[in-house]
Structures are given as structure tokens and as C-alpha cells.
Amino acid sequence: MSRTPPSLWRAALPVLACLALTGCSSDASHTDASSSSAPGSHNSPKDTGSKGTEKRETSGKPKSAASPTHVSIPSIGVNSSLMRLGLNEDGTVQVPPAEKGMTAGWYTGGAVPGERGAAVLIGHNDTRFGRAVFHDLKKIGKGADIAIRNDRGAELHFRVTGTETVSKKAFPTKRVYGATNERVLRLITCDGSFDAQGHPVDNLIVYAARS
């Protein structure tokens, strides 16, 4: 999502050596994709204390849970299918490839939307191909509806509770990926000005709870 693929995700996960969430591309692929929890050197979601994450990354979800397939945010015109995102070999969170900039992704190492825990969706702000799926995410307001449809045909609704822009060098990993008994959703993309290399220096995080 950022003009330079690799740096966006460096801000998200501690262990991810340099990713800044959605908006740019993952350092591993050097494409314009965003890498969700990776903007800076932080710990990866599996280091935030939730046991069983590695198993979920293999299967992508608990066997009994339905997988999210689509997200819509009427207030800002988002209407996208969801691709599955895991971890790169270097431990950073994957992001959608630049050529699929208008498609958001669900991080399978987190919770399934609607289940207890933090479910994380990642999307680019823009890529070398132009504006992307979360380009207008900064316009979302508190109370806005986010609808997630799963592969069983059910539609789940979440209400935005807040947003924050953070430096990729100080990404709030625990707040975003940490364990919780609530059914919550986080959306992440790139934000802010660009550094000398043309990489966005911040991440925009949207927090939402099951309505």
C-alpha cells in the first residue's frame, strides 16, 4: 500500500524484523504488498503470549470455525473478498500482493472474525498500481459498521470503537494481536508521511467490536 512495498508492514509485529503493516510490501517479497504486523522490529503475533497460534497458522482456523470470505464497509465504499495471509519465512506477516491491491486479507494466525480474540484484516492504502482497498480507511468514523461474511453464508457485524495512527517503530503489538476474551476486529494499513526511501512511516489501526 505504500509507494514502496517493503516497508509498510514493518511496524506491526515485534519479531517481524522490519515490516510495517499494510500499505507497503513485505520485505521478503519486495513487492508493493503490505505486511501486516511488521513495520519495524517488533515481536510477531505468535510472541504475544497466545498459545496455539502456530497450529492455527497451519490450518488457518480452528476446525469448527468458519473462514471469513468477504468484508464490506459501506461508509467508505469498501467491498472486498478476503484472501488468507500467514507468515513469511522470516516471521513477518504476509500482505496481499501489489497486483491484488484492491483485495484485503485475513491474518490466519489470529482469531476468526466473530470468535473470541482479535481478528486482523490487512489491506494496502495504495500500491504501484494506484489506490488500493483501504485507501479511504482514514475516513472511517467511530460507530461505523464493518460486515464480515464467512464461507457458511453468515454475515457478522462489527462497530468501530476507535482508530489510531502509530509509528512503525512503535507498533502496539500486544494491543493489536494480544489475547482477549472479547470478539474484536482490527484493520491495518499504511499511513503518514514518507521517509527518505519513500516508505510510509506510520500505520493506521482501526479497532472494532462485535455488534
Rank of each mutant, 00 (worst) to 15 (best):
Q197V: 02
P172G: 13
C190Q: 03
T4N: 08
V160G: 11
R131G: 04
G153L: 13
T4Q: 06
A104K: 03
K168P: 00
A33Y: 03
I188N: 05
S25V: 03
A154C: 05
S167Q: 10
K100Y: 10
H199M: 03
A154S: 12
G178S: 09
P39Q: 02
F134E: 00
R56K: 15
T163C: 13
S25A: 12
K55I: 09
S41G: 07
N181S: 04
Y177W: 14
L121D: 09
F194S: 03
S26Q: 01
S35Q: 01
A118G: 11
D27R: 00
N88P: 01
G60V: 05
R3T: 08
K63C: 05
L21M: 04
T189Q: 04
L137V: 12
R10S: 07
M1E: 12
S81L: 02
E99M: 10
S34H: 07
V201R: 10
W9N: 04
T163L: 14
E89A: 12
R183E: 01
H42Y: 07
H42S: 10
T22M: 09
T58N: 09
A98T: 01
I146D: 06
A66E: 15
R10Y: 02
F129Y: 14
Y177P: 01
K142S: 15
V15C: 00
G123W: 10
G117D: 01
G77R: 05
D136P: 03
V201Y: 02
A66N: 15
I122F: 04
L13M: 04
M1K: 10
T22E: 08
P172R: 13
P74M: 07
P68F: 14
R152G: 11
N181A: 01
R159C: 08
T4G: 05
T4Y: 04
S37F: 05
D151L: 13
A65S: 15
M83S: 13
H124M: 10
T165Q: 15
V95Y: 04
P14Y: 04
Q94A: 14
D191P: 05
T127D: 11
R84I: 08
G52E: 08
G91Y: 01
S25Q: 06
T165P: 05
K174I: 03
P5Q: 03
G105Y: 04
L8P: 04
G101M: 01
G178I: 05
D32V: 00
I76C: 06
D136M: 02
V206R: 08
Y177C: 10
K46L: 05
G141C: 11
G198D: 05
I146L: 12
S75G: 10
T31F: 11
H30D: 08
S80R: 07
A179E: 06
G162D: 15
D202V: 03
M1D: 12
P113V: 04
A208C: 12
L87G: 01
S211G: 09
L8Q: 03
A104V: 12
K61W: 11
G123A: 13
A17P: 10
I146Y: 03
A208S: 14
G198W: 03
A118E: 02
N43R: 09
G162E: 08
R128K: 13
V95D: 06
R210W: 08
D27A: 02
S167D: 11
T69P: 00
G114Q: 08
H70Q: 11
L19F: 02
